[in-house]
């Protein structure tokens, strides 16, 4: 029995399914890897309010294909503050607070201003096995800061953060139940944050 066109489908495809179905998957990588990137992109965009998300299939440095499609995007607020930068930010905030107080402002709050920075995201599945070599290959293809997305409407000529001197990617691990966890992986021995 043919289904009348006017009826709605019994089961609507999920938004994620629709996104993957709509997107033109890149021919340079396996479809499952590209779909994985789209899944993480969807999660970041709608659950963590990231903006300017974009899938990179080729390295901005060498233009070679990346080991797998990577994402780049802008978080709503700063994702990572290096402890040394944190100290500098606190000092600046303290100075401005004192200056405000002298000017007769009643508010005594310490305002720390750390503008969000674009981040690389490496989508992975929990069932995968990784090696140091593969991780190193991923870092070889990434730049220090992801290139600005073309469609980005945010201000682009912000001076590069002088504290950002090591490469980092956000490791996004997707579990079979579609939970996504995010870990920051830095290239090199970088001291931990003082949470």
């Amino acid at each position: 029995m043919a289904r009348p066109e006017t009826l709605k489908q019994a089961v609507q495809p999920s938004p994620l399914h629709a996104l993957i179905a709509q997107t033109q998957l890149s021919p340079s990588h396996l479809p499952n890897l590209h779909a994985l990137a789209l899944q993480v992109q969807h999660n970041l965009q709608f659950q963590h309010s990231w903006t300017a998300l974009r899938v990179h299939t080729h390295s901005p440095l060498t233009n070679e294909p990346l080991p797998r499609p990577l994402l780049a995007g802008l978080p709503p607020k700063r994702l990572y503050v290096h402890p040394d930068e944190q100290i500098a930010l606190l000092k600046t905030a303290e100075r401005t607070r004192k200056a405000r107080k002298r000017a007769g402002d009643s508010s005594d709050a310490l305002e720390i201003k750390a503008a969000p920075e674009r981040e690389w995201i490496l989508p992975t599945r929990l069932s995968e096995k990784w090696t140091l070599r593969r991780l190193s290959d991923v870092f070889a293809g990434t730049s220090l800061v992801p290139p600005e997305a073309e469609e980005s409407e945010t201000v682009t000529d912000r001076p590069a953060n002088p504290w950002r001197s090591t490469k980092r990617v956000v490791l996004a691990t997707v579990s079979p139940d579609s939970t996504v966890v995010y870990y920051i992986v830095q290239d090199g021995v970088v001291k931990p944050r003082q949470n």
């Binding site: 994702l79 990572y80 140091l132 920051i184 992986v185 090199g188 021995v189 931990p192």
Partner: peptide, 11 residues
């Protein structure tokens, strides 16, 4: 030797 430092992203 090459090393990678890993921290929770806080997302």
């Amino acid at each position: 030797a090459r090393a990678f430092s890993i921290e929770w992203a806080g997302l």
